[in-house]
């Protein structure tokens, strides 16, 4: 089996790769998005911690 035969999938390549492509795309995107969200949330948490420190110092 050559590579182009494999991609062609007996004439059904378009349908098969649209399915596997979408699954791969979504399953890469979801953890990536969650990582970015985590970074943003950590920054927010850091701000809260810094704010608390400043309040404690001014007291």
């Amino acid at each position: 089996m050559t590579f182009s035969e494999f991609v062609n999938m007996g004439g059904y390549g378009y349908f098969i790769w649209m399915c596997f492509g979408m699954v791969a795309l979504v399953m890469f995107a979801e953890p990536l998005f969650l990582r970015l969200q985590r970074k943003a949330l950590k920054r927010k948490l850091d701000r809260v911690i810094r704010m608390n420190k400043r309040e404690n110092q001014s007291e």
Binding site: L41, K42, K44, L45, V48, N52
Partner: peptide
């Protein structure tokens, strides 16, 4: 669920004291 905890519990002492959370 860890992100949700970071979001909802950000005013709690335990999360602010947790080492490694600091970005």
């Amino acid at each position: 669920v860890r992100n949700i905890i970071l979001q909802r519990e950000r005013h709690t002492k335990w999360l602010q004291n947790l080492t490694g959370v600091k970005a």
